[in-house]
């Protein structure tokens, strides 16, 4: 499949806020929103990172297949690890999500290799709505939207949580940006506009709002 001309599930949802767009991995995403300042660090910032390239795979041979390609494989289900600028999340005993950072190509390469077919290794097409929820007050957003206890987790715990937020099935992990708490959240792209609008509404009530990818990911700031 081609890897160009990608559209974020949130393209229309964010357009009304007239963000400054930047193309990341072939997908225009908000780099900054008008009037955006660093205040989100003390409150809540929600960022569309759907542009990051992802590869998914499952099957009894998935772990060995990744290991053979020198991909760091988390030892336990529902855990994750950094890989380059991106991450590898073990969603179940035999299911994995690999996501590139802004400048990585590992997931893209793996996705291409998966198309070749391998016994016991099954590609999972990933077309997620991907968000980063960050800021010192982000836990208040989480406790109003989800019944999982994220406050008791630290980034060092490397836990992957599959749960629901505002009625949407999500995958969540904590990946702080420096000293600022940050949660990465993936959901079905077709739920994305509802998910975004709902979370933004609550975040704005709590003093936060949308932030661009340049604010959260230094590697896209230039």
């Amino acid at each position: 499949m081609t890897a160009t001309m990608r559209t974020s599930p949130l393209a229309v949802a964010v357009a009304g806020r007239k963000p400054e767009l930047r193309e990341v991995h072939g997908m225009p995403v908000p780099a900054r929103f008008p009037g955006e300042r660093d205040t989100w660090k003390a409150t809540i910032g929600i960022c569309d990172v759907s542009a990051l390239v992802r590869a998914g795979l499952k099957g009894p041979g998935a772990e060995a297949w990744l290991a053979a390609r020198n991909v760091p494989v988390p030892a336990a289900a529902n855990s994750w690890t950094h890989a380059g600028g991106g991450l590898v999340a073990r969603l179940a005993r035999t299911e994995f999500l690999i996501e590139d950072g802004c400048d990585d190509v590992a997931a893209a390469r793996l996705r291409a290799e998966l198309q070749a077919g391998e016994p016991g290794v099954y590609p999972v097409i990933r077309q997620d709505c991907a968000l980063a929820l960050a800021g010192a007050a982000v836990n208040e957003l989480l406790v109003q939207t989800c019944n999982a206890d994220f406050a008791s987790q630290s980034a060092a715990d490397s836990i992957v949580t599959l749960t629901q937020m505002v009625g949407v099935s999500v995958t969540v992990l904590r990946d702080d940006r420096g000293t600022v708490p940050c949660y990465r959240v993936w959901c079905d792209g077709t739920m994305g506009p509802y998910f975004w609008e709902t979370l933004i509404g609550i975040a704005e009530e709590l003093g936060g709002g949308p932030v661009g990818i340049a604010s959260l990911f230094a590697d896209t700031a230039t």
């Binding site: 559209t7 229309v12 505002v166 009625g167 949407v168 079905d188 077709t190 994305g192 509802y194 609550i202």
Partner: peptide
């Protein structure tokens, strides 16, 4: 409480709009 009413939009939603 706060009402949550999830809905799904296809990737072509904006075209239909």
């Amino acid at each position: 409480g706060r009402g949550f009413s999830p809905h799904r939009e296809t990737p072509l939603h904006s075209r239909h709009e």
